[in-house]
């Protein structure tokens, strides 16, 4: 039986004590590809920011490998942060450093490895995302897809057990997006990494996600949870069905010849 990697308990997400999501409870298992889904502006990225310890939630707990990210301080929080990797939406690569230097940075900061070892490991990480040829390029010289892959390589620098990806396929062409999906599947298969992905790219979700939760602004909570292929077929919640099937109106369910 798989272990729990992340446990979110009674989380109220928001800023300045203003909750935009209330009482969220869910678990993410080790090695799972878990997608947080929802319409634009519903608070997906805010939940992600709470989970990676960037901003404190209004209330609630986020237990990562048995430790609460919300209350962790100092060295405890630092060691917790070293167990996770985050790839931000636009890559957030340091513009003054080459791609290789970006990947080497966490290794330099957190390990006692000699420089040649750091470079070797960083190059292996770039190899994982098929970016060896771009090692000496600056982030500005990379395409959108390359930048996202470089961000994933940097997030994996310290061999984290959990990778958080914010909108990894946003703005990418279908082929690059499919390549990124394959990379996520490959990394999970070979390294057993747990992926927490915030996205609303339906094709990508259906291709890679084991489980998804869907957030909704109006109810300020989770309105659906389960494997995405199952949610796509489930007509019990019209909003979820319409979302997965790109229907604009509820009546489309009735008019759908397949239904």
């Amino acid at each position: 039986m798989k272990q729990t990697a992340i446990e979110v308990k009674n989380l109220s997400a928001g800023y300045n004590n203003q909750a935009i999501m209330e009482n969220l409870c869910f678990e993410i298992l080790s090695g799972e590809i878990f997608v947080i889904l929802g319409g634009s502006g519903c608070g997906k990225s805010t939940v992600l920011k709470h989970m990676i310890g960037l901003i404190p939630p209004v209330t609630g707990k986020i237990i990562i490998h048995g430790q609460d990210m919300v209350t962790a301080q100092g060295k405890t929080k630092n060691s917790l942060l070293q167990k996770i990797g985050v790839a931000f939406q636009n890559g957030a690569l340091f513009g003054s450093m080459t791609v290789l230097e970006n990947v080497m940075l966490p290794l330099k900061e957190y390990t006692d490895l000699p420089m040649d070892a750091i470079e070797t490991i960083a190059r292996v990480k770039l190899g994982l995302v098929d970016l060896e040829q771009g090692a000496f390029l600056l982030p500005d010289e990379l395409s959108g897809g390359m930048r996202k892959r470089a961000a994933i390589a940097r997030a994996m620098a310290l061999d984290p057990s959990i990778l958080f990806l914010d909108e990894p396929s946003a703005g990418l062409d279908p082929l690059t997006s499919a390549g990124l999906d394959k990379l996520i599947m490959d990394l999970r298969a070979s390294l057993g990494i747990t992926f927490v992905i915030v996205t609303h790219e339906l094709e990508s979700i259906l291709a890679i996600a084991d489980r998804t939760i869907m957030l909704e602004k109006q109810t300020k909570g989770i309105i659906a949870t389960g494997p995405p292929k199952q949610l796509k077929q489930d007509k019990s919640n019209p909003y979820v069905y319409n979302f997965f099937n790109r229907n604009l109106e509820l009546r489309n369910i009735k008019n759908d010849p397949k239904s």
């Binding site: 470079e119 070797t120 190059r123 292996v124 190899g127 994982l128 060896e132 000496f136 298969a189």
Partner: peptide, 17 residues
């Protein structure tokens, strides 16, 4: 699989620019 992935990359130990 980890070793297979690592061996995929052409490693040159010297720092080059």
């Amino acid at each position: 699989p980890l070793l297979v992935l690592a061996e995929k990359t052409d490693i040159k130990p010297a720092i080059t620019n």
